[in-house]
Design a protein around this nucleic acid. Structure first.
Length: 342
DNA sequence: TAGCCGTGGGC
DNA sequence: TGCCCAAGGCT
């Protein structure tokens, strides 16, 4: 694949003038060096997650754990609670495992291959850290880059089959100088101008280089294979009261909402469970939630346990912190709280 | 390797 | 409203 020396200078010039200001980013031209810890943390949080959703989580994490040694020393439950609401909870467990490996090694690996071997760091994140924090000319390919490249070269082959082609094309664009800024520039371009719908081609710095624009098909790329329909699932969740406390449990590390704090439930996640103890149950509401691969309807049952629960642990009502629950269980808690106060 | 794994915002 | 999408990784 032939090298393309036209794109990077134009894009970097645009980035120097239009880079987004983000908490984890060093502004272009400042001459400062990005902190690998902050680059890593932000990249993991940003996996399949919007900038708007990540910003406050990043600020809270870095305020509480300023360095990788601080995070490595944290309790698992504290990290899970701080991550609650951000989704994809395997990231939080891998984050902690990674922090502990890095801390005991005395620092982050400085090569893409070294980074790639750490938990939660894959092809994208390893390239991003190597380029942004260590100034190495690695090619960073995320959803933005796939979209930008598919348009620049008018690639009509659909994703995900086209992914290797798009990666090879992206490699022809990566400059030896400022590879980190180039990667971030590609992502900023994709996020603000070369957007999925209604791309703003009129103000794009690469308009003269874009094959899709010339062919009038920019808004139709990248093409994607059709997705399967989402099945419907249903289940039960128990609001089990004992005195002035409710039963909560930590879910198993693997699987749905792995490692998060939750009300006992059954029937929706491949696990058939009995209630946390004998009681007379009454329906107090229903909660709907959308997961990546199914829609969920959860019947909320409430009851009073006469004896301590068979599993989980009792948490006093005023000690239940909504922010430490995953999104689904926040909805359940809202239903329970409305019922209790009624 | 393709299915699994959250959540919220935009249109 | 329902669907799409967002700086993916793991198995």
């Amino acid at each position: 694949m032939r090298e393309n020396k036209v794109i990077a200078p134009k894009l970097l010039d645009w980035y120097d003038r239009h880079a987004r200001s983000l908490p984890w980013r060093i502004p272009p031209g400042s001459g400062q060096r990005a902190d690998p810890y902050r680059v890593w943390l932000s990249e993991v949080m940003l996996q399949q997650t919007t900038v708007a959703a990540v910003r406050d989580y990043f600020l809270r994490f870095t305020a509480r754990w300023p360095g990788v040694q601080d995070l490595a020393a944290a309790d698992d439950a504290e990290v899970m609670a701080e991550w609650a609401g951000l989704g994809y909870y395997a990231r939080a467990r891998n984050l902690l495992a990674c922090a502990r490996q890095v801390a005991s090694a005395g620092g982050f690996p400085t090569t893409r291959d070294g980074l790639r071997a750490l938990p939660g760091i894959g092809p994208y994140t390893s390239a991003a850290i190597a380029a942004i924090a260590y100034d190495q000319p690695e090619t960073v390919v995320d959803g933005n880059v796939e979209r930008v490249v598919s348009r620049l070269f008018a690639v009509e082959k659909p994703l995900p089959v086209a992914k290797p082609d798009l990666t090879a094309l992206a490699e022809t664009l990566t400059p030896q100088m400022r590879p980190g800024d180039f990667a971030q520039a590609m992502m900023d371009l994709g996020a603000t101008i070369c957007t999925p719908r209604s791309p703003a081609c009129g103000i794009c710095p690469l308009i003269d280089d874009c094959d899709a624009r010339a062919a009038g098909i920019a808004a139709n790329l990248p093409r994607k294979a059709p997705k399967a329909a989402k099945p419907e699932r249903s289940g039960i969740v128990w609001i089990a009261r004992h005195g002035d406390a409710l039963v909560l449990e930590q879910r198993p590390d693997k699987g749905l909402l792995g490692g998060t704090l939750a009300f006992p439930s059954s029937g929706w996640d491949g696990r058939e469970m009995p209630p946390p103890g004998p009681a007379t149950w009454a329906e107090i509401g229903n909660v709907r939630h959308v997961f990546t691969h199914f829609n969920l309807s959860l019947q909320v049952l409430s009851g009073v346990l006469e004896n301590p629960p068979d599993r989980g642990r009792l948490i006093r009502l005023h000690m239940i912190d909504r922010n430490t629950l995953p999104g689904l269980m926040r909805k359940v808690w809202d239903v329970a709280r409305a019922d209790i106060s009624a």
